[in-house]
Design a protein around this nucleic acid. Structure first.
Lengths: 202, 202
DNA sequence: CACAATACCGAATCAGCGTTCGGTATTCGC
DNA sequence: GCGAATACCGAACGCTGATTCGGTATTGTG
């Protein structure tokens, strides 16, 4: 098997997983700074402390890292979003929760997010990215449905609902480009500000 | 000189310039679709109809294309922005004009814009991009000054002016990712929508 | 027409990068 | 402690892709 499989012995499994996600996190930081193509595997090995071949005990190849990064980013966010909309609450309240969780997530994982947005054109184009793509779509769909519900029951008004959705996506996706950990505004304050702008018609 | 200099004979100069900007436009379209690193020079030569070495009569190297693309994008926009704020008009009106011109520009040059945002991390990091970087900063500064003027004279209110600026940047910069020429919304309608959200406190 | 300047060609070059693989050290399980 | 699984090493490989360069065709100019 060319695929590096995790160790079968349970005692080693924890260390393996920890080291692997350490590698992924390091890759995310480097990719975010220098770009995916702009980062060589040797820079990665240097940053992780491993030697050239050692990386391949944890990943199948460079692209594997990208997939892992996207997964770590989208999966928990999507799960949280599903939880929020599963609860019975007014649309406006759900939107606030969604945006709050979302902003907090992209701020905490801003390296992952920067990589995701930078490599977007590759992700949208190729077959093997179907899963990632559909996760993104699912999340956007949830957002849209909340907006639609709010519009339908009269608690939200939009000049154009789709444009409001796209504007929201733009704001939040751009956030990782400027936030600094420990910056002036907390993720919560940022999210509130975004909600206020989108809900301005209300 | 390794630099391909334009022909000195005036009769040829026009053809040369035309062909060069044709090459740049083709590169912008390819880069926007496949990414800068994801596009090989041979794909570019094929798309332009030139042969391998022929490109280098018009450009110094691959990176030269990136610089040209950014210049074609930012220079006219910045100039237009300076015109708008040079005129004496209420801040709100100037903002609408700015956003209108801006959205129209990124929609028309969405390929250029996609390349610019994708390669942002390279542009922000390296020395030789100082010019492009300062053009971007100058434009953002103009926007901020208009918002500040509006806030000062009481015609605009923001929960947090900086956040509103960043949100606006996010919305507009994201626009090229979803607009389609001849789409449902005109650039003007999009710009109006964005302004309404940012000025919602008013 | 003639000679420069210009436009373009395309095989060859050269560097960098991702990946492989045989080998060694370390660690767990009995 | 002994064997097997695991972790890691690092030189070597193959390939892609940007760039070069000597040469040829074309085009304005005197």
């Amino acid at each position: 098997m060319p695929v590096p499989s995790p160790p079968t012995r349970p005692a080693l499994r924890a260390r393996y997983d920890a080291r692997r996600s350490e590698v992924v996190a390091t890759a995310a930081a480097l990719f975010a700074e220098r770009g995916y193509d702009g980062t060589s595997m040797s820079e990665l090995t240097e940053a992780t402390g491993l030697a050239a071949g050692g990386l391949y005990h944890y990943i199948e190849g460079k692209e594997d890292l990208l997939i892992a990064i996207c997964d770590e980013l989208l999966e928990p966010l999507l799960e949280r979003a599903r939880e929020i909309v599963a609860a019975e609450a007014p649309a406006v309240e759900q939107l606030r929760e969604l945006v709050g969780a979302w902003v907090a997530h992209v701020v905490e994982h801003r390296h992952h997010m920067l990589v995701f947005t930078q490599e977007r054109q590759a992700i949208e184009r190729e077959r093997r990215w179907r899963r990632v793509r559909s996760q993104r779509q699912a999340f956007e769909r949830i957002l849209d449905e909340v907006l639609a519900r709010g519009e339908a029951d009269g608690t939200m008004t939009f000049a154009d609902r789709r444009l409001s959705l796209l504007a929201l996506l733009g704001m939040v996706n751009y956030t990782p480009q400027w936030v600094r950990p420990g910056g002036r505004l907390s993720p919560g304050e940022i999210a509130d500000g975004y909600c206020a702008m989108v809900l301005s018609g209300t």
